[in-house]
Structure formats: structure tokens, C-alpha cells
């Protein structure tokens, strides 16, 4: 188990000591590394960064329809957001979804993956497929089902009334707090199984001898989970945290399909508002582009913190 020291893995500190010229083999390997990245980097550059650059320019323009001019001052669209009550509300709502849903979902997914990874578990394929199912089901039927069961005369009220947990039917989708709760439940339902598969895949790369070693040391399943499994899954956990942060801050589907943003825009997400501004309302693409960049900056800041905390190589 002695780790082999790989020459080009040691980061070179430029400030310390005399500059060492890398060996030709190491240089060739570094070049190979760049060659590995090239196709993906070029594609992302053309397909994503070029349009992003144009969107950035657009965010400094005002005007309606296709007649756009540079704004005066240039940051006009960004300044405009400060007095946009609807946008400010969507920021709050989206952050609320993020704070509640992401931790709940990822912990549940991690627990489920750990249970399903047990080699002695029976009907593994069935459990896995069943729990993944929500992610595969078309949005159309999922939103229809959720709206139906949370309707005032729907299944949820029927059950709660039968159990005497509530006195009268609750208008789940008609009140701000409960409608937001339905959206969070919908997200949990749809994405927990999806995140679980990343953990399942990650668990397969864990060296089984480390788990056996922990067992020999007398650690129970819970301690093994926290002190052996979780640390080794850290790269995958970081991935899912970044992915769900990104997904939630750009959330559109649930807001658009489950509640249409209502009641009175209180469940609307930032991306849903962006869509309204661009394609439903009188089109204001300069403002829409500025909104997109605010979303980008918000995701980038959170992802940067997450990378800083979670992306250390030991």
C-alpha cells in the first residue's frame, strides 16, 4: 500500500529553490495531457464561450425587439435589477430552494446508495431501478400527478383528513409556503435517485480492503460509513454538490410546470423569470442577458467556495 511517488504530480513551487527544468519525458507527458483536453476544450469554447461572450455584450445593451443599442450607462441593465421587485423575489425563492432541498437530497441519496451497495442485499436491480425511476419519468406526467395529488380535493388532503392531521382541506398550491414546499418535495422526489447513481458509481471505486480493515478494527457500519466511505467518496460528493447547486440556481421545470410561478410569483425561480422576460413578455434580451450573468456569478461564487473546500488532493 505504499504510494508510488509520481514525478509530475508534485506541484512545483516557482518561488522556492532553483528552477528545475522538467525532464523531456515529463514535458512530453504534460503535452499529452493537453492533447487529451483539446477536443473538449475546443468544443466548449465554440459552443459555449462564444455565445456567452455575445450574451455578455448583449447585457450592456438596451432596446426592445431586435433594435438594440449600447446602454447609457453601460451597466444600466444591472442597475435596473436593483429596483426589479419580481427579480429580487425570485432570488430569495431560489436561494430558499437551494438551502433546503440540496442538503436533504444529497444526504438521502448517500444513505440510499450505501444501502444499495451492500452485496448481500436482495433484489438490488429492482430497488435501484425503482428509486431511479422518478428521474426517467417525463416531466409532463410528473407535474400532472403532483398537481393532482396536491389539489384541494386531492389524495394528500384525503389522507391527512382521514388521519385527522388537518381540520379542513389545505390549498397546497394556492398558498406561498405550501406551494414552495410542494416544489421542494417535487425536486427531492425527482432528483434523489439521480444523485444516488453518482454515489453508486463512486462506491465501486472504493478499495474494498479499506472497508475490511475498518471492520477488523471493530468499527460499526455507521462509523465505517463516516470515517472510511465518505472521505473516499469526497470527489463524487463535491461533484454532486456543485451539480445540484448549479441545477437549483438555474431551476426552471418545477416552477414552470408545477405552479407556473404562482401564487403571485412567489414560487417563481430566477430562470423562470428569465424565460418570461425573453420569450413570453415583451422581449427584453439585453435585460435577460444581464439576468443570466447574475445567475452565472451566483453559481460561480458558490462553486468556487465548494471547490476550495472540497477539491484538495491529499
Amino acid at each position: 500500500m505504499t504510494p508510488v511517488v509520481v514525478p509530475d504530480r508534485t506541484p512545483k513551487k516557482k518561488s522556492k529553490g532553483p528552477k528545475i527544468k522538467p525532464s523531456p519525458a515529463a514535458r512530453r507527458r504534460s503535452l499529452t495531457g493537453w492533447a487529451f483536453l483539446l477536443p473538449a476544450a475546443v468544443l466548449i469554447g465554440i459552443m459555449m464561450f462564444w455565445p456567452m461572450f455575445q450574451a455578455l455584450i448583449l447585457s450592456f445593451k438596451t432596446g426592445r425587439g431586435s433594435a438594440l443599442d449600447f446602454a447609457d450607462p453601460l451597466w444600466f441593465n444591472y442597475e435596473r435589477m436593483l429596483s426589479d421587485e419580481i427579480f429580487k423575489m425570485t432570488v430569495g425563492t431560489t436561494l430558499l430552494y437551494l438551502a433546503i432541498q440540496v442538503p436533504l437530497m444529497l444526504v438521502t441519496a448517500l444513505v440510499l446508495a450505501n444501502i444499495l451497495n451492500n452485496p448481500r442485499l436482495k433484489f438490488k436491480g429492482f430497488w435501484r431501478t425503482a428509486i431511479f425511476l422518478p428521474a426517467a419519468i417525463s416531466l409532463v406526467s410528473y407535474s400532472l400527478v403532483f398537481r393532482t395529488i396536491f389539489a384541494t380535493d386531492g389524495l394528500v388532503n384525503d389522507w391527512l383528513l382521514a388521519l385527522h392531521l388537518i381540520d379542513g382541506p389545505v390549498n397546497w398550491l394556492g398558498n406561498t409556503d405550501t406551494a414552495r414546499m410542494v416544489i421542494i418535495l417535487g425536486l427531492l422526489w425527482r432528483w434523489t435517485g439521480y444523485n444516488m447513481i453518482f454515489y453508486l458509481a463512486g462506491l465501486q471505486n472504493i478499495d474494498p480492503t479499506t472497508l475490511e480493515a475498518a471492520k477488523m478494527d471493530g468499527a460499526g457500519p455507521i462509523r465505517t460509513f463516516f470515517s472510511v466511505t465518505v472521505p473516499q467518496l469526497k470527489p463524487m460528493i463535491l461533484l454532486t454538490v456543485i451539480m445540484s447547486t448549479n441545477g437549483t440556481l438555474q431551476l426552471f421545470d418545477e416552477s414552470f410546470n408545477l405552479t407556473r410561478g404562482g401564487p403571485a410569483n412567489t414560487t417563481m425561480t430566477m430562470s423562470h423569470y428569465l424565460y418570461e422576460v425573453s420569450f413570453v413578455n415583451n422581449p427584453n434580451f439585453g435585460y435577460g442577458a444581464a439576468l443570466s450573468y447574475v445567475i452565472l456569478v451566483m453559481v460561480a461564487i458558490l462553486a468556487a467556495i465548494q471547490m476550495k473546500v472540497g477539491d484538495k488532493r491529499d
Partner: peptide, 20 residues
Amino acid sequence: GAYYYEARDAVGAAITQIMG
């Protein structure tokens, strides 16, 4: 007018508030 959908949504939100 050109801002029909904005006005429609705004009135819809106002009605929700009034009913509340």
C-alpha cells in the same frame, strides 16, 4: 398593446393578493 402579458400577470398577482 405590446405589454399585454406583463399586465395580465401583474393583474393576476394583484388578484391573488386581494383574495389573500
